[in-house]
Design a protein around this nucleic acid. Structure first.
Lengths: 146, 146
DNA sequence: GCTGAAAGCCTCACGAT
DNA sequence: ATCGTGAGGCTTTCAGC
């Protein structure tokens, strides 16, 4: 599962993070490799766990999720928390972290009533503090080898 | 730029969020549409801004980013903040939010010295408080029509 | 990692519902 | 307006080198 990454791999990762549906032919053209060579490298990056998947990115607002928020949640029983997260589709991100608050959640809701419904589920487990997202300045920033 | 989404679109969004590199033939097979029909729907979802892109997902740890953190940053001059974010590739997410802290950043660094370097850049703008990510329970949770 | 051939995919035009 | 069918061109993939 470990792997040595060279310059080709770095450029491949950059291109596929920018456009995951790019053809292997086009990708090869951009990094100056033949289609079979670049396809084999991509296959190895997937097998090594460097590339974990390919995902379409959807605009929450376009689906009617007018409000996005980051919610801090205090110390709560781990299993109870993961169960509640698993049962809540509005949670788009969930991290267990160090600090006074043990959890940070990223949520998407349609309106204030919806926000209240989601927060109520987590208020039952621990104290919450909610920060409404005003502007998303960066998201899914591309990662390159250090 | 507005659009009515039916059951087909919902299933298409679910499939492409799970695997963005799926062929239109396979996608059509799964939602019970012909390849041209499903390709036309995907094209319209892109044009309407519902699908904003397709991205390969990379494991930070596999690239050597052993530490991920969520950093809260207090009130800072907006332009100064966006400039610093733009100049810092370690910032994988950046949100301007309501509350006592005006910003929440998601960062990926290789070690503690690297963490210090990144935090120092933002400490110059406002007070920061850093929460190291212990476990990622959910990330890029799929969004479906409400 | 490259080349070449076979299989599969994408996309266009066109006809049907 | 939207779907399905079929042909042509491109992409992917497997040998062999």
């Amino acid at each position: 599962m470990k792997i040595e990454l060279d310059g080709y791999d770095g450029r491949i990762l950059a291109e596929l993070q920018a456009d995951a549906r790019m053809s292997m032919t086009e990708l090869g053209r951009r990094v100056h490799l033949s289609p079979p060579a670049v396809a084999e490298r991509v296959r190895k990056l997937e097998a090594a766990g460097v590339i974990t998947g390919y995902h379409a990115c959807v605009d929450p607002a376009a689906l009617g999720y007018a409000i996005r928020a980051l919610v801090r949640v205090g110390r709560a029983e781990f299993a109870r928390m993961t169960d509640t997260i698993a049962a809540t589709a509005e949670v788009t991100g969930a991290w267990n972290v160090t600090g006074e608050d043990s959890w940070i959640l990223e949520i998407a809701v349609t309106d204030v009533a919806h926000l209240d419904r989601v927060l109520t589920a987590f208020c039952a487990l621990a104290q919450t503090s909610t920060a409404i997202i005003l502007k998303t300045v960066r998201e899914r920033g591309p990662l390159l080898p250090p």
